[in-house]
């Protein structure tokens, strides 16, 4: 398992794009928002938590189609499926590697981008907390989508169509935590819901992903 995690991390480092692209995309989206809604700082401060959450979500989505497709194309998935690792473990590790290379950098970059959008001071902590709790769910759900579409020639667009509706609950509760935090309101309820969703998704969805992957490998 650890060997697989290390290999995936090494691969995304060497191929470039792993760490960098998602972050650059996040930066660009955040930069474009003031161009589209206007530079008024009060307006930006109101929408900042939501925009940052949405930006992080889209940046996560960006790299999903390569999550399993590369291993599919070069036959590694066939070999991994016949290896002693359970496929549930393989998809979990893949999701973890995706989170480390995509989710974690986004969490770290979010406060910096918050400055650009005039995020109110109490919001920074909550933004980071909500992203730390929410982005793992995004990676795990995304892995399920990637497993569904892995055998398709042009699965990228379909992958977004399948995964985005599944992101709704995570986005609602995650952005709610950040928004309430920024407004200085109580955050316990959405925070608990967000953690609950992440925990349930991490515990259960790998089984669905592995099932789907086995079907695709047939």
């Amino acid at each position: 398992m650890i060997a697989l995690l290390l290999r995936d991390l090494k691969l995304s480092l060497r191929a470039g794009g792993g760490f960098g692209l998602g972050l650059a995309f996040f930066l660009i989206v955040t930069t474009l928002v003031p161009f589209s809604v206007g530079p008024q700082s009060a307006l930006l401060a109101t929408i900042a938590p939501g925009v940052l959450w949405l930006g992080a979500l889209l940046a996560c989505l960006l790299s999903l189609d390569r999550l399993l497709a590369l291993d599919w194309e070069d036959g590694s998935l066939d070999l991994l499926a016949t290896a002693p690792l359970p496929l549930e473990g393989v998809v979990s590790i893949k999701a973890l590697a995706h989170w480390i290379t995509t989710g974690l950098p986004l969490v770290l970059a979010a406060p910096v981008l918050g400055v650009l959008l005039n995020l109110p001071a109490p919001g920074y902590g909550w933004l980071v907390v909500s992203l730390i709790l929410g982005t793992p769910a995004l990676s795990v759900i995304g892995t399920f989508g990637a497993a569904l579409t892995v055998g398709l020639k042009r699965g990228g667009l379909l992958l977004s169509l399948l995964v985005l509706p599944l992101y709704v609950p995570t986005l609602i509760f995650g952005a709610e935590v950040a928004r309430r935090g920024a407004a200085g309101m109580e955050t316990a309820t959405p925070l608990l819901m967000l953690s609950g969703i992440s925990a349930a998704v991490i515990a259960l969805l790998p089984f669905a992903s592995a099932t789907v992957l086995r079907i695709n490998l047939r």
Binding site: R7, K10, L11, R14, A15, D71, E73, D74, G75, S76, D78, L79, L80
Partner: peptide
């Protein structure tokens, strides 16, 4: 296919 990673 051999499952070989070109960057390794």
């Amino acid at each position: 296919s051999d499952g070989i990673k070109p960057t390794l």
